[in-house]
Computed example of a mutant assay.
Amino acid sequence: MIEAIRTDTGDTTDETGGASIHTADEVLRALDAAAVEDAVRKAAAAEIMPRFRQLAAHEVVEKNGPHDLVTVADRLAEEQLTAALTSLLPGSLVVGEEAVHADPAVLGALRGDAPVWIVDPVDGTRQFVHGDPGFATLVTLALRGELLASWTYAPALDLMAVARRGAGAELNGQPLRPGSPAPGAVLEVAISHYDFTDDEQKRVLALLETDGVAPRPCGSAGLEYLHIARGELDAVAFSWENAWDHAAGLLLVHETGGASGTVAGEPFRIAGGNALPFTAARDAATARRILGLLAAAD
């Protein structure tokens, strides 16, 4: 069964049985979305764009292999965003890609009761390092696994997409309404890049190489979700579940009428533990088709 993106909401009461300090509606009412957007733009302007096509060799480091890179821009932008976002919403926490790399225990905040900012300072670091403008800064606000608001900013392309739970999504201030793929059209699908997949993942994703589907390796995950929200791509099929790569885009796709699910037919859980691969698509029918093909691997 495929359904519109939803995630575990978790317990909404404290240990004494009373009302939780935070509810999703309370957090959204306290949210100054314009201030968040300003913080994202300022971090990119201060720490990312001055280094675009200007990186020195010592400012680029491998994390887990030659294709998994981190730059000084990633680290400094995440530090600036962490300070800015937590000041905008007192009591909130940050789960950032670089913070988790330094201390995996940081991920535990996704299962806690405090509002959490999920941050990928430079999504598409490889593109950034090679001077390709296809990278983005991703910020999502979540509470007990529920995605509340997201910002997808591609500074080199001057694109800012904002989504808010139940209120739709906009790109540069204009509503996003991608609609469904045309009947009978070949589905354009971005899949996990071959450089980041093992043999078994490649075998499963190869099931999309069939009539009526045109898979291609993905670039920045955040921008692939934006392509769906703009109607430029029909679906993604990904074999990894890092929250910072997917949270912003999943809310963006949902708020433009899309759907998602895992190969087990379950909603994607932002805190992890998902059956993989999973998909997000322009509509539920497309999501069902993609997952049906992938499920044939079993």
Rank of each mutant, 00 (worst) to 15 (best):
A105M: 12
G112E: 09
G96V: 01
P133C: 05
L107M: 15
R165W: 11
D120H: 04
G166I: 13
G124C: 05
G168S: 12
T137R: 00
E98P: 03
L141W: 00
R144M: 04
L107V: 11
A156F: 07
F135I: 10
P104G: 08
R111K: 13
S150P: 00
A154R: 01
P90Q: 02
H130D: 14
H130W: 13
D123K: 01
L107P: 01
R111A: 14
D158H: 10
D158G: 05
G91E: 08
E170V: 15
A114Q: 15
T152N: 07
H101Y: 14
T125A: 06
R164S: 14
Q127D: 15
L171C: 08
V129N: 07
A109W: 09
T140L: 08
L157M: 09
A136C: 06
L93Y: 11
E98M: 06
G108S: 15
D120R: 01
G108W: 08
T137W: 02
D123N: 09
A163Y: 05
G124E: 05
L159A: 11
V106P: 03
L157E: 13
G131N: 11
P104Y: 08
T140R: 01
E97S: 08
L159R: 11
D123C: 08
V122D: 00
P104I: 09
R126S: 14
T137P: 01
G124H: 06
G134T: 11
L138T: 05
G166F: 15
L159V: 11
E170L: 13
D120G: 06
G145P: 03
Q127M: 13
D113F: 11
V122Q: 00
